[in-house]
């Protein structure tokens, strides 16, 4: 009997082990190891061809070169702006889907929101280019309608980059928001009104605090995705798009400088983590109460 019991226990443990193995391997091989490798790589200084020394030279270079940290700050600032815009646009959409839409249209709307995900980043960016270029659809339409005298160039500026990025990432804001708001009992909103709150109060004091885990989760995902995006800012930003990922790419590919590329990569990770940490502190949330929950 006891023998039987122990084999069963072992089998259970084995099952658990097997279930977790892919996840553990994934984390270990694709997340932990590369990052350790990156840190190690970033701490190598090139002194001559094929000769490297341990040192912080790559990080010192970063600090001494304003172009680099300006670009990082610019990337961070624009990513924050994108996050805020995605939240401002995404919240009403999510609220409509979760609370106002009927049961049948809810699913359809949700799917509708997911459809753009089926198209690759690249194709989406090219879509924007076709629309917005000087000889593109928007420009020609504006001229035909008579709203513009000559061709209008809508590409290659920060506003376009931000619009493109918001469009790309907004789904990742909507999805956690819908799932949080969906879990909110309608009674809660009615109680908010019943106790004397107007729409603004109910939104500010009840719906938003309730949705906070979803808001924070969405913001984290969106911020990380934006700060780490490559194609959209490059393709839509044109000559003035300085995005930090582009600099990482340049270090790795154009300048064969993997050491400093690795340092940049690590700095981007550290910087975005810092921004998120500050954001969590300011909003009084914790990772476990937000991302884990929603």
């Amino acid at each position: 009997m006891s023998f039987k019991g122990s084999t069963r226990q072992d089998a259970k443990r084995l099952t658990l082990l097997l279930l977790f193995a892919p996840f553990t391997l994934w984390i270990l091989l694709l997340v932990v190891l590369p990052h350790i490798g990156m840190v190690v790589l970033s701490l190598r200084e090139k002194v001559a061809p094929r000769i490297y020394e341990f040192g912080f030279g790559n990080y010192i270079d970063f600090i001494q070169e304003p172009i680099y940290w300006n670009t990082l700050l610019r990337t961070g600032g624009m990513s924050l702006l994108v996050t805020v815009l995605a939240l401002l646009i995404g919240f009403p959409v999510a609220y409509y889907i979760a609370k106002l839409a009927g049961n049948r249209s809810k699913g359809a709307l949700f799917i509708l929101c997911l459809i753009p995900l089926w198209v690759s980043d690249l194709i989406r960016a090219f879509g924007w280019i076709l629309l917005l270029r000087e000889s593109g659809i928007v420009s020609t339409t504006l001229q035909k309608v008579g709203l513009a005298d000559g061709p209008v160039e809508l590409l290659y500026n920060d506003a376009t980059v931000i619009v493109g990025l918001v469009y790309t990432v907004i789904l990742f804001m909507i999805v956690p928001l819908v799932s949080t708001l969906d879990g909110m009992d309608n009674e809660m909103i009615e109680a908010g009104y019943n106790l004397g709150g107007n729409s603004f109060t109910v939104m500010r004091r009840i719906v938003i605090p309730y949705a906070m885990p979803g808001i924070v989760a969405g913001c984290i995902v969106v911020f990380m995705l934006t700060a780490g995006s490559y194609l959209t800012p490059i393709l839509l930003g044109g000559k003035n798009s300085s995005w930090f990922t582009e600099q990482i790419y340049d270090q790795f590919i154009r300048r064969y400088n993997w050491e400093s590329g690795a340092a940049f990569g690590f700095l981007l990770l550290a910087f975005t983590s810092l921004v998120i940490w500050i954001g969590l502190k300011l909003s009084g949330q914790t990772l476990s109460s937000t991302v884990a929950k929603s």
Binding site: D185, E187, M188, E190, A191, G192, Y193, N194, L195, G196, G197, N198, I206, P209, Y210, M212
Partner: peptide
């Protein structure tokens, strides 16, 4: 509803969890 002096205890109470 918010201007009526009629208050309501909801079926699931609807206390605000946050």
């Amino acid at each position: 509803p918010n201007k009526r002096n009629v208050k309501m205890v909801f079926q699931h109470l609807a206390l605000f969890p946050m």
